[in-house]
Write a protein that binds this DNA or RNA. Structure first.
Lengths: 217, 217, 217, 217
DNA sequence: TATGAATGAGCCTTCATTCAT
DNA sequence: TATGAATGAAGGCTCATTCAT
């Protein structure tokens, strides 16, 4: 139980405030087209101050990603504590993830940005990067644990490798959410024009499909 | 069957050549960090000429996306002609899609870029956008057709709405490929460090999971 | 005898024009406080154009230094061709150098900047740096040659090492000019307030002192 | 003999401490790339406090220059008290100056900065500027005195104007030291690559040259 | 049609200085 | 007196796009 000094708490509060402002700006401009100037303006601080709290634009973006993955993990962690069959845990996690994304679409974008940075290798290793990576690893662990539980209690086929299955589930989930966003945001997305689905139905269908695919008969 | 004049054919050939050059540049610099200067240089034409064939950078990117989706559709279309149970068609389409992405990762990035543009609403409607949208719609139609065939021949559960299921399948497939890319490109991606999968195994596992989820027992 | 295409000549002319503009700006703002914006404005070109001709601020500064040392060397080279005793050659070179600086004070500042850059090691080796270094080396060679001539014809003591003496002469000359500038530019420089010397007298005195120091009796 | 209050003494002590810190920072970062932040940190005081003791960065730099010239003058003053022929005094002063610079290169940079400021006329007259000027004037006076002594005792030619000669000597000395620094710091300085001199030899050679130039035969 | 020189808005970042506590 | 968080002007540089030839 760490005790932070008043200074530290204030500093943390300001970081939170700045991240909020950044998210707000990005909601309008999109992730990449948000400028430090505008973020500072919305946060009602000077541009220099912004750099006092985040040493670069990338650094700020990563902080957003870190916050998002932390929040998500808290929810996933709670699911794992429930006394339920593995298959049900997995389904609950699926709902948790998909709903989190639905309610926090900007974090989803941030996650993608984080992966983008890793892909490009643009960043020297830094504490914040490491934190993000650890969160991602942790989330994956939650999934794999649930799968293992399910394989033990017989609710999930054990013909799959749990880790590989974990990756598949996670990847597939992200992909479905991505798709869902297109429907919501892109007015011109003709593919989806005819389909009168709602997000909830899509999510339910997806979870059901996956669940039924891995369930033991 | 429209007949193109020599002029038009030459123009089309040049467009193709430029797209080839752009893809080549992007393979090295990544999608976003490629500049019009370098593309023109690699294409061995003047920068001004580049703008004669593509009125903006976005326009060029969309053309890449258009070509990618066209190529993909050709393959998907052929699958649909096979005399096979619906569930097998779907699985074949899955392999087709995933292998296409694996072999043409740049197109995958281009697809994502296309969706990104739609999401941001940055683009006024244009012929090229429309074409991309039509391709996407067409691909979706192929999937839905296969699903309908499967539901009719009894190889696929008919508890799902075919269109919704189509979206799910497509979205999930994209997500899995995205995940697979991370493993390949990002050395530091800790989540995946422990998992010793190979791409082929991931793809097979994914298709199997989905197939088994939608199969009629 | 190299033949430059029209393009090349025009490009070179523009580089010259930009350097002229840069020198003009520096005359007012001092070397370090000149901005690329202002230089572009004075040169009556866009800022982007400036970067078309000089890839960085440092690069532009080095070009100035290069031009200065080239011009100086031309004059020094001519002196060496004269049929005169070594001691006279050295004295003439001294006058040449000191007058060059007097008439082109900005180049003097540029030389200092060049040395500053080398000192800081800020620059990766580049063609322009190399050219500057070669010019400096060449100038030094002129001096050493003159000293060697003087030692052979008996007009200069041969108790000194010519190279070391060359460095001393050059260094001392630069220092005297530096001093002279203070007198001219700094109104508040009290040290010099009482001394009613003029530049010419200072230069003459210095050359005489040095000459008499190295002359064979 | 003025008596300072405890307050004043403490204040002075802190100024000294800050200057020490500044010199320490500059030894690492170079003169121009040292920031007030880092100086405050090394001095272990708040940045605000720094501005309590020095009203601007320039002001701090000038204080360094002031200290340097004061220290140098103390040494020069002692030389002048020796009972020796004028030419020997001058030579001793030369060694004193050159060794001082060699051992305190940062002060040398500070002197140059001071002159730079005067040249640019950036500074409104201030007590600290005046002090620096007085130090400079004092140093010059020491040199001129020694020259006058030498002219009277016959050890130095009296064909020169002592003040002008003083300027020449001082300027030449500074220039030689400047040159010597280049050799030490700039690895790529091609001019000097071939010359295997050491600093001591250069200094000795220079003093000998000057001495022999002004000596009465 | 083909060119590439020219453009300038826009970006990220630095740092001396101020001021409320 | 001491602090350090906040500031914002200023600077160097990039790159998609235009236009005269």
């Amino acid at each position: 139980m760490e005790k932070l000094s008043r200074k530290d708490r204030e500093r943390e509060a300001k970081r939170v405030m700045i991240i909020d402002a950044a998210l707000q700006v990005m909601k309008v401009n999109g992730f990449e087209h948000s400028t430090m100037d505008e973020i500072a303006e919305v946060a009602e601080i000077g541009k220099g101050t912004l750099y006092l709290y985040f040493k670069s634009k990338t650094s700020l973006y990563l902080a957003i990603s870190e916050r998002g993955s932390r929040l998500l993990n808290e929810q996933l962690g709670k699911v794992l504590l429930l006394e339920l069959p593995g298959i049900t845990l997995i389904e609950k996690m699926g709902f948790t993830y998909l709903n989190f994304i639905r309610e926090n679409p900007l974090y989803f974008t941030a996650f993608n940005y984080f992966e983008h940075i890793l892909n490009e290798g643009q960043m020297t290793n830094s504490p914040i990067i490491e934190q993000c990576e650890n969160h991602a690893k942790e989330a994956m662990t939650y999934i794999v644990r649930a799968l293992q539980i399910g394989m033990q209690d017989g609710s999930i086929k054990n013909s799959y490798d749990p880790k590989e299955l974990g990756i598949i589930i996670w990847g597939a989930s992200k992909g479905v959410m991505h798709m869902a966003f297109l429907k919501n945001h892109a007015n011109h997305m003709k593919i989806l024009d005819d389909v009168e689905f709602d997000l909830q139905s899509l999510i339910t269908g997806f979870i059901e499909l996956l669940g039924s695919g891995m369930k033991n008969d």
